[in-house]
Write a protein that binds this DNA or RNA. Structure first.
Lengths: 120, 120
DNA sequence: TCCTTGAATCGATAACTGTCGATATAAGGA
DNA sequence: TCCTTATATCGACAGTTATCGATTCAAGGA
C-alpha cells in the first residue's frame, strides 16, 4: 500500500449506470433503476448538491474536506453528506496525512448525462 | 377553457435549472441548488424513476395513467408518485375524458443533462 | 509523551417519505 | 338514474433522513 491510500466507493456505480439506455430510449430495468435512483437521490439534497458542485468545479478536480466546511451546516453533517455521496459512487476519497481529499468519481458525470439524453 | 384542460406544473423548473452553469463549471447558488435538487430528488426513487422512464420512452411522448399501473405498487401509490414528478416540474398532465395522460415537461431532460455536462 | 487539529462516528430527535386500504370524485354508459 | 371505470385524496404507519452536540480516532508537532 502506498502512503496515500484510496478509499474506494463500494461499487463502480458509473459502470452500472453507463450500461443503461437513455431514459427516453427504453424502460429501465428494475436493477438499473435501483442503481441510478441511488445516484439521483444522493444529488437530491440541496446541501449535498452544492457540496458536489464545489468539488466538481474545483480547479484541481479534488477538494480537502476543510474547504467544504462553509456550506451552512456543522462539520459532522458535512462528513455525513460526503459519506452518502461516496456510498452512491459519486465521489472518491484520498487520505493524505491529516487531510482527506474528495474528487468526483471518474465517468460518473458522463454516465448520468447520457442517461438523460434527449430522444434522437 | 378547452375540453382537454392542462394541469400545469407549479413552476417551470426546466427554465430554473436551464439557467445554471454545469455542476463542474461553478459552484451552484443556494436557490439554484434547491430547485435542481428537487428534480434529482424526484428521480431518486426506483419506482418513480421507472415510471418516468416509461413515460419518457413511450412512442407518443405521453402515457395514460392506466398504462403505468404495472410497476409493482398499488394504484394510489402510482398516483402519489406521478404527483411528486409533476410537482418537481418533470411531468405535465392532460385530462381527456376519464383518462389522464402524463408527458415529460418540455426542456427538462436537456436542462438536467446540461447541468451534468463534463468540464470542457 | 502530551497537545492540537482534521475528520469520522455515536446517539438522539424531529421531520419527511413510501406504502397501503378505504374512500371520494368524476366521467361515461346502460 | 344507477352502475362501472379511471384517478385522486385521506388517514395511518413503519422506515428513513438531515441535523446537531459530544465523543473518538488519527496524524503531526512541540
Amino acid at each position: 500500500m502506498s502512503k496515500s491510500s484510496v478509499i474506494e466507493a463500494p461499487r463502480t456505480a458509473a459502470q452500472a449506470v453507463g450500461c443503461c439506455p437513455p431514459l427516453s430510449g427504453a424502460v429501465l430495468e428494475v436493477s438499473q433503476a435501483v442503481t441510478a435512483a441511488a445516484m439521483f437521490k444522493a444529488l437530491g439534497d440541496p446541501v449535498r448538491l452544492r457540496i458536489f458542485s464545489m468539488i466538481a468545479s474545483s480547479p484541481g478536480g479534488e477538494l480537502c474536506v476543510c474547504d467544504v466546511l462553509d456550506v451552512g451546516v456543522s462539520q459532522p453533517t458535512v462528513s455525513h453528506h460526503l459519506k452518502k455521496l461516496r456510498e452512491a459512487g459519486l465521489l472518491t476519497s484520498r487520505k493524505e496525512g491529516t487531510w482527506v481529499h474528495y474528487a468526483v468519481s471518474p465517468g460518473v458525470l458522463g454516465a448520468l448525462a447520457s442517461l438523460l439524453q434527449l430522444p434522437a
